[in-house]
């Protein structure tokens, strides 16, 4: 990471802290803000957040590692999260899983070579009446079929 990049991350974090307040209770919104832009929270970003909120970097890391939607390692620019809980499972999750893996040529837990898409599982998305369900970044798709998977993937640029 060069100096310019570092400066811009520091600036970004400063902005987030101004928005949410210089307080420990702002930690999650700040982490979520950094991740929204960079898809992960790098070591440098963690140190800066710790410094600016006056907490230990280990604390920041410990919080990141607790939450399944926060990451300390780089991910794809887009994340697809497929519901693996029982109702979506009964409604055809396996077919969707196969279609996604086939079309992208990767397995769940992996990221495409061009760093565009990461495949992950999620637990119940609160869409069980319209499963199988998945989320692309924050957008939700319901009653997904293998054909619909192609459309969804085409919609991700």
């Amino acid at each position: 990471m060069d100096v310019l990049e570092k400066n811009s991350i520091t600036e970004e974090i400063t902005g987030l802290i101004e928005q949410f307040g210089r307080d420990r209770s702002s930690l999650l919104p700040v982490l979520q803000g950094v991740q929204r832009k960079h898809q992960h929270i790098s070591d440098f970003a963690q140190q800066e957040i710790a410094r600016l909120l006056d907490i230990h970097p280990v604390e920041v890391y410990s919080v990141i590692s607790f939450y399944s939607f926060l990451h300390s390692k780089p991910k794809g620019r887009n994340t697809i999260r497929l519901c693996k809980t029982i109702i979506c499972d009964l409604l055809g999750k396996n077919e969707i899983e196969e279609a996604l893996e086939r079309e992208l040529g990767i397995k769940f837990g992996e990221t495409t070579n061009d760093k565009n898409i990461t495949l992950e599982y999620a637990n119940c998305l609160g869409m069980c009446d319209q499963g199988p369900a998945l989320i692309v970044n924050e957008r939700v798709y319901t009653k997904v079929t293998p054909q619909k998977v192609i459309e969804i993937l085409n919609g991700i640029n």
Binding site: R24, L27, P29, S62, F66, Y67, F69
Partner: peptide, 26 residues
């Protein structure tokens, strides 16, 4: 409005409060 970050246990009210305070949702 505060967003969670994908942890079922944060629905438990004291874990939720921990999370709001910027901690692990324990």
């Amino acid at each position: 409005i505060r967003l969670g970050s994908g942890a079922y246990v944060c629905g438990e009210e004291t874990a939720l409060i921990e999370s709001l305070e910027g901690h692990r949702g324990e």
